[in-house]
Design a protein around this nucleic acid. Sequence first.
RNA 1: GGAGAGGUGGCUGAGUGGUCGAAAGCACUGGUCUUGAAAACCAGCGACGGGCAACCGUCCCAGGGUUCGAAUCCCUGCCUCUCCGCCA
Length: 426
Amino acid sequence: MIDPQLLRKTPQVVAERLATRGLKLDLQLLASIEADRKQWQTQTESLQAERNRVSKSIGKAKANGESVDDLLASVAGLGDQLDQANQQLQQVQQRWDEFTLALPNLPDASVPPGSDETDNQLVREWGSPRELDFEPLDHVDLGAGLTGLDFETAAGIAGSRFVVMTGQVARLHRALAQFMLDLHTLDHEYEEIYTPYLVNAKSLQGTGQLPKFEEDLFAVSDDYYLIPTAEVPVTNWAAGQILAADQLPKRFVAHTPCFRREAGSYGKDTRGMIRQHQFDKVELVWLSHPNDSWDALERLTDHAEQVLQKLDLPYRVVNLCGGDLGFSAAKTYDLEVWLPSQKTYREISSCSNFLDFQARRMQARWRDPETGKPALLHTINGSGVAVGRALVAVLENYQQADGSVTIPAALQPYMGGVESIDRVSA
RNA sequence: GGAGAGGUGGCUGAGUGGUCGAAAGCACUGGUCUUGAAAACCAGCGACGGGCAACCGUCCCAGGGUUCGAAUCCCUGCCUCUCCGCCA
């Protein structure tokens, strides 16, 4: 949520910054809601003040054994007036909430202008695509040859955009997750956390998926939603909390499945496991001191990059432009890994600083020793990295001419020393 | 699933329908004392919103209700704990 003070006092500044996203703030609507709010709040509060005054004197009069008939008469119609004013106020507040909850975060000044991914800014590249002296297969054909990836069976069990993994491929998938968890907990000093995979609407509102993006989520009965990312349960760990200063920064790593409807992406990446309804992800989350969040974003991004570097997978880092920026983010670096079959870089991690945007929605605070007062903390998160896409990247980048796949050295300890997965001759 | 108890400030924990935003303790902050620290003593100390300000309002799990007035009474929901049963 954008700071309400900023919205009220400098709406045109907010409008300018939101324009970076290609979003037009309805200043007129904002002004009219705010005018109504002021009127009804003032009226409600003065009626409440009067009621409180009279009620207190009734109490005193009764204590003194005096008659209270006159006092009672003087508040006769007050209750109804108050009810009406209060109803109006609640309506206005609801309009305000709906309006502000639907506003995305303000992009940071370092976010490049632009409308879509073609305007994203290249930050750096690491490694260079391997020169293959044969025509690379994509992971679907590779996986089929290894008899480890089976989309047809998955379609029969569940539907499209699911996969069944078996044998050494399933093990490789698990090895990737284990490797990432160990890297982040042991080398990068994250605390491992296990959370619910079903969450309530409040948590989703806290991180910003609701109320605007319900169609992206799988809702199950009883008001639960499947998590679209571990960001939701992990960040909400701090919801409603007031953390002590020495608890910051709090850094969590979680390995969870993620579930997404992928509504609106019909026809996109229909082949293979790039875009699935269910996928695993290792997620990094920081809860930080407000002064440290920009540094935290750089460090978290580096931690995600370390995964790709240790796997020796070529990638690049891009700074998302305003139009490509997610709803809650103030700034996002995407890590894009090289896929030989597509001869292009594909997103494998997204690292964002949300500043106090999520913290305000979920009331995640810390106590500032300078002031002794609670203050909003900052949240930062990123994938470290998407496990399914990492599997795709390993399969494709480590494929051999005979259809086998060598195992990256970093993963071999997690594969029982296996150095290669071989094609099963048909 | 059955039976019971309870949800109050950063924490523990009192609270009679009427100066209760709420006792007390802990924690925290400032001061006295001390070479310094601790202890002791004194003082201060909830959050959120509105207003230039004086000040006003809201909040004792959440939502309704009764009342001139609700932390306190009534209803509903959520959550926690204890016991029994069942269970990966």
